[in-house]
Amino acid sequence: MEQTDAGPILIFRNVSFGFDDNLVLRDVSFELTRGATLIIHGAAGSGKTVLLKIALGLLRPTSGRVILFGLDVTEYTEQQWFDVRSRIGVLFQEGGLFDSFSIEDNVGYPLVNQPLLQVPPEEVAPRVEQSLEFVELGHTLEKFPSELSGGMRRRVGIARAIVTQPELMLYDSPTAGLDPITANTIMALIVKGRDMRHATTLIVTHRHQDGEILERYRWDDSIGGLQKLEGVSAGTRYLVLEDGRIAFLGSPAEFDACNDPHVAQFSSR
C-alpha cells in the first residue's frame, strides 16, 4: 500500500449513515491532520460510535466519502480494509477484549493476526510486555479479562491498541463509567501515547475534563507525568455531534466562545 505523508490522515466528506431507514449520521465532514487531536463530544445516541466504526471500515457509509492515509477507502472490500486497519489502533467503548484469551494473548492478537505486520514470533512476547509496561500492567500477563477491574481492562485495551505502533489512534469513551482518579490515569496514558509516539488521535468522550487534559497538557518523560502547557496546544480541535449532525467543529478557543446552548453544555467550565 502506498504511503502518503502529505495532507490529512482522515477525511470525512459529507458522510451519512443509516440503519435501515433512520439516519444516525447526517452529512458529516471533517479533516484530521497528521499529529492532531480531535475530541468528539455528543449526547448518548448522537452517533459517535457509529462515526468511529465508519472510520475503521466496520460500517459502510450510506453516502459520502471516507479518505484514510490519502486513499479513498469508501468502496474498499473487507480484504483491502484489513491492510488499512493495520495502521489504526482502536479502543472500543465496550472494551472488546476477548474473554477466552489471556491478557498476553489479547495484547498480542494484532501482532499475530494483522496481515500487513508480519511480526516474527520471537518478537511478539517482548512487544506485548513492553506495551503492558506502558500501561503499568506488566504483572497481569497470565490473567484473564474477567479477573481485572474495569479500569484495568480499559488499560489492557489501550495496550492492545498501541502494541502495533499505529499512526492513528481511535478511542471510544475511554473514561466512561470510571471514577475520576482512574479516568485521569487513563487520560494521562492517552496523552502519553500521543506525545511519545506523535500519534494522530481521535477521541470520543462525555467528559469535558478529558478534552481539557488533551488540550492543555503534554507528556513529560523526564518527570514521568503530565505537564501543563503554556497556552493551548495548536493541534487540538473539537467536534460536537447532535443527532448525527455536526453542531460544532473548531478550535478550543472557538469551542469556549461558542454560544450555541447545546454546544455550551459540553464546554461548561
Partner: peptide, 18 residues
C-alpha cells in the same frame, strides 16, 4: 452474541481477522 454485544467481533475485524 455476547461477543457481538461486547464489541469483540468488531475488535476481531479491527485487529485483522475475519
Amino acid at each position: 452474541g455476547s461477543m457481538k454485544v461486547t464489541e469483540q467481533i468488531d475488535a476481531m475485524r479491527a485487529l485483522g481477522t475475519d
